[in-house]
Design a protein around this nucleic acid. Structure first.
Length: 104
DNA sequence: AAAATGACAGACA
DNA sequence: ATGTCTGCCATTT
């Protein structure tokens, strides 16, 4: 199964997210080499053990919405210096991980 | 085997 | 801008 390989890639990328930044699932899927696997990213992270030090709280959907059913994420993001809007959404305009910076 | 599900994204109203 | 529908993909019913 390439699922393991894929999740491995996902972990690598998520771990590379800088402090105080957030990334979208589609972004991670694209960077992992599988552009259409945005959903798998979520599953991979859900199944991923927290022992790997994966900042999954920095991963949000393209709307900036946090992971459903996970209230602690709010606090974790606050700890990162990221403050949520009234709708409980991250301000992507400011906190989205600018992957373009990696290429320069 | 077929249909439903999910930590999503893009298109549309 | 929010809410809904459709498309995607692997896993689970």
């Amino acid at each position: 199964m390439d699922r393991k390989e894929f999740s491995n890639k996902v972990y690598e990328i998520v771990k590379d997210i800088p402090f105080g930044k957030v990334a979208t699932y589609g972004m991670i899927a694209m960077l992992s080499g599988y552009p259409r696997r945005s959903r798998m990213v979520g599953q991979a992270l859900h199944n991923s053990p927290d022992s790997l030090n994966i900042p999954c709280h920095r991963v949000v959907n393209h709307q900036g919405r946090l992971t459903p059913g996970w209230t602690d994420q709010k606090q974790l993001l606050s700890n990162e210096g990221i403050h949520l809007k009234e709708n409980e959404c991250v301000d992507l305009k400011k906190y989205l991980w600018d992957i373009a910076l990696i290429f320069f």
